[in-house]
Design a protein around this nucleic acid. Structure first.
Lengths: 245, 245
DNA sequence: TGTAGTTGTCTAGAATAATAGACAACATCG
DNA sequence: CGATGTTGTCTATTATTCTAGACAACTACA
């Protein structure tokens, strides 16, 4: 009763996209671990019952994602995609946590602004009614790949210049130091999992249906006063979280 | 910092499909609850920045799914999509559990056969080594919609004719009676959630990325002897499970 | 009854996706 | 070097998707 499954035509999803998605899960399943390479485009075309050019489009898409690398005359190599592990503890730092597992680590601000804090943010940051907050949306990169996207909220009175400092240093820890806060601690972290929404798929270059780990965190200064609340979504493909007690 | 998100071209996903998916979540979010109807095709086309015909394709797709119903000259009505609740207890019966919440309830056999039981099935059904089992794949309907698909395994010695009886009666309970077993009890149920695979999407008419609830169950006769083990996947959109202790 | 608002259908054309084949460019290995 | 196997690029053709516009068919309401 096993059902051989090929690509579906007229499904509203282009063949190359279906094939790319299936190759991606085959890679994740370790199907090509023996050789570390994808089969030749011609073989893949036969397997999926499509033209070689269609497979080429799929593989090109995966190459753009950074999942594979193809070199002319040689073949298509599967790049190491070991999941990064982000330890979460009292002293969680994105860069330090990921560093050593991946090459360059930095974050890039995609949007920022100052505005009156919402009720949630007022509660989480223990702000007075009507206080302003700095909101920053940022994408985290490790080893050249986007692995996370976050929304951060800081009290506007103490951290008005966070956005500039983050852009300059590529690190929240360093930006805190620049704002006169040399140390901070993780007060709480809540973790959930769900489907990536359109915004996350866009920022993290995920496929439809991809799964994200969402961590909602509050950081406090050494006196226990909240300095940051944030909502970070990690691509579940690329990151696993390790809770340290 | 809100980001207006329109449809993506050249993404490998047809525009009508993207639009259908977004309308589906808008409905789920209650966006059209005031009127109970979709906006006119012309308005939707403007909202998504596409042609009216493209929206029509999306709405036709949703209509085929049974999510909406459009009538000429009037508009497109959103159909009631209250989730059905299936109580799970010692005396779980699909028909009886769903009945009363939805109109016609029945199951349809899509495949069946008798073969030597796998190791898992031998263990679960407590069969002697090398025994045969009857395997049946079936889709459950409620109110005209497919809500579940299942694989069932029965000991072949006692229930050789299950497939015929199920096809004839549309009910497992009745088929058991026809096989001389007037009563049975639920021994165990394990529940998990995951993405629907291609087979499930096909049988249940689900979209890519849809989520299924998977229940693995064992039923026993009044003497405690296993008579059935099964793996049922419910469309998480359409069914919720209620555990009764 | 008639008017406004809506969906259904038809035609046609443009843009995109997929197929097909030929050959060039490159890597590897004997 | 030369043979083989691979990817890259080009052209051409077909199929599908999307756009565009016109008008018919239908509903609802005054």
């Amino acid at each position: 009763m096993t059902v051989a499954k090929s690509v579906e035509r007229h499904s509203g999803v282009a063949l190359w996209r279906q094939i790319a998605d299936r190759i991606r899960v085959s890679i994740a399943d370790g199907e090509f671990d023996e050789t570390g390479m994808l089969p030749p485009a011609f073989d893949l075309a036969a397997r999926f019952g499509v033209n070689r050019h269609t497979v080429r489009a799929a593989v090109a898409f995966l190459a753009e994602e950074g999942l594979v690398e193809t070199v002319q005359g040689h073949g298509t190599t599967i790049l190491g995609r070991d999941k990064l592990t982000l330890p979460i503890s009292k002293r969680t730092r994105f860069s330090a946590g990921i560093g050593g597992q991946a090459g360059a680590v930095h974050i890039r601000v995609v949007a920022s602004g100052t505005h009156p804090a919402s009720n949630d943010v007022i509660r989480l940051l223990e702000l007075p009614e009507g206080a302003d907050c700095v909101e920053i949306e940022e994408v985290g990169f490790a080893g050249g790949r986007a692995v996370s996207c976050s929304q951060h909220f800081f009290p506007a009175d103490r951290f008005a210049a966070m956005a500039e400092h983050i852009e300059a240093t590529g690190s929240i820890t360093k930006a805190f130091i620049a704002c006169g806060l040399p140390d901070y601690l993780r007060k709480s972290t809540e973790i959930s999992a769900r489907h990536a929404d359109a915004r996350e798929r866009d920022l993290l270059k995920l496929s439809p249906g991809a799964i994200v780990l969402e961590a909602r965190a509050i950081n406090v200064d050494p006196d226990g006063k909240p300095v940051q609340c944030s909502r970070t979504r990690f691509s579940a493909d690329r990151i696993s979280l390790k809770l340290e007690v």
